[in-house]
Simulated scan of single mutants.
Amino acid sequence: MRKAEMVTDKGTLLIEFYDDDAPIAVQNFIDLSKKGFYDGLKFHRVIPGFVVQGGCPDGTGAGGPGYTIPCELDGTRQYHDRGVLSMAHRGRNTGGSQFFICHNRQNTAHLDRNHTCFGKVIEGLDLIDDIRQGDVIQKVTIIEENA
């Protein structure tokens, strides 16, 4: 089971990955994290009651890692519940580094099977309500656990 510890200005989120449902998105996030890609980036888009979004290297919402990955929409956990980590994109199969964390199911259900869900916040969930636009992702650390 692989997890990530995301230290933000508001505290630490522990994320559990959906390795079986979204292996490409999970590995992409892990690879970028291990390179320090997310360290120091801001949450550039925060819509209360909807999502907090980060992962844009230029802070505008238009940037990425210089490549795209395909959407993975067929897994059993492709539902945008509270705390779910999902790939942001500007059209099918255009995700790269940007991700969002859902505030609640009521306002995010329409994203199901349109954006790849690849993990979920399992500790520190209440902190997502405190994150504001401009808050910083200080560091993302990947935790590899033996099954």
Rank of each mutant, 00 (worst) to 15 (best):
A4D: 08
T94H: 01
I142C: 04
L111Q: 02
G96T: 00
K139M: 07
L73F: 05
R105L: 04
Y67T: 00
V46L: 14
E123K: 15
A88R: 01
I128K: 02
Q133Y: 07
A25R: 00
G83D: 13
V136Y: 06
T60H: 07
K3A: 03
R105K: 14
I15G: 04
I30M: 12
G75I: 10
P70K: 11
G49L: 14
F17M: 08
Q53S: 13
Q133W: 13
G49R: 13
A109P: 00
E72L: 05
L14R: 08
R82P: 06
C117N: 13
V46G: 10
I69C: 02
S86D: 08
D21H: 10
Q98Y: 01
H80E: 08
H44M: 09
T12N: 09
C71H: 05
Q106W: 00
Q78F: 06
H89F: 00
D130F: 09
A25F: 01
S33Q: 09
F17D: 04
G134D: 11
A4Y: 11
D20L: 13
P57V: 14
T60W: 10
Q27C: 04
D19C: 10
I143P: 03
V26L: 04
A4W: 07
E144W: 13
N104T: 02
Y67W: 03
T116V: 06
E144T: 13
V140W: 04
L125P: 09
F118K: 02
G64W: 00
K42M: 14
D130S: 12
L14C: 00
A22Y: 01
T116E: 04
P23D: 11
I128T: 05
Y38R: 07
D21L: 11
Q106L: 02
P57K: 12
G83M: 05
I131L: 07
I15E: 03
V136F: 01
